[in-house]
């Protein structure tokens, strides 16, 4: 509420994609850099497959209300997720969607959000890294590319804390892939 150094992130998608883990990784990275965080989630009773929402608030000072109320960034990896948790965005909100599984929603335009970034996240992951795993880490790379909320090195460290050794290389590549996707987008001159 009028606090400029408060950053609010909402990610939504399908249970099993690792969005809650992604929010935890980013939370830990922010803590390493001396920030205050609150991380929360909403999920159904299913172990996977249900619509999920993961939220993270990062601030330089005490966070009273721990939930996201006015997101700086909304990332949606499924249509269902965007439908269910896409409300509450404002002109400060950047919206990222995975265009390989969904089309740009008609309720978003230049008037009601800061920018819409449609990236083929899942299909790029599969074609570049021959993997269906790591979607959440690609998204972390995209978030990092867009916001630089923590240093890349800190983020790498936080990712590595949650990844088994044999998957470390894949995850670092996934992180790079996300950042490269943003970089490529910037070069096209499209407003993001």
């Amino acid at each position: 509420m009028g606090n400029d150094n408060r950053f609010e992130l909402r990610m939504t998608g399908s249970g099993g994609q690792g969005l809650i883990l992604a929010s935890i990784i980013l939370a830990e990275a922010a803590i390493m850099e001396g920030k205050i965080v609150t991380q929360s989630q909403v999920y159904g009773a299913e172990a996977r497959g249900g619509t999920t929402k993961a939220e993270l608030v990062v601030s330089d000072r005490h966070i009273a209300y721990p939930k996201v109320t006015d997101p700086d960034l909304l990332a949606a990896l499924t249509n269902e997720g965007l439908k269910q948790y896409g409300g509450g965005i404002s002109r400060k909100t950047r919206v990222v969607i995975d265009s390989s599984v969904m089309s740009a929603p008609d309720f978003l335009d230049e008037e009601n959000c800061r920018g819409l970034l449609s990236l083929p996240i899942r299909s790029t992951l599969i074609s570049k890294l021959q993997s269906e795993l790591g979607l959440n880490v690609v998204l972390l790379g995209i978030i990092e590319g867009l916001t630089a909320i923590v240093s890349v090195e800190t983020l790498r460290k936080a990712v590595s804390m949650h990844v088994k050794k044999q998957f470390l290389d894949l995850n670092m590549k996934a992180l790079d892939l996300g950042m490269e996707m943003v970089e490529a987008q910037v070069k096209t001159g499209i407003r993001i």
Partner: peptide, 9 residues
């Protein structure tokens, strides 16, 4: 439920 599942430093 919220405090139970909330993560904070």
């Amino acid at each position: 439920e919220t405090i139970s599942h909330l993560r904070e430093p």
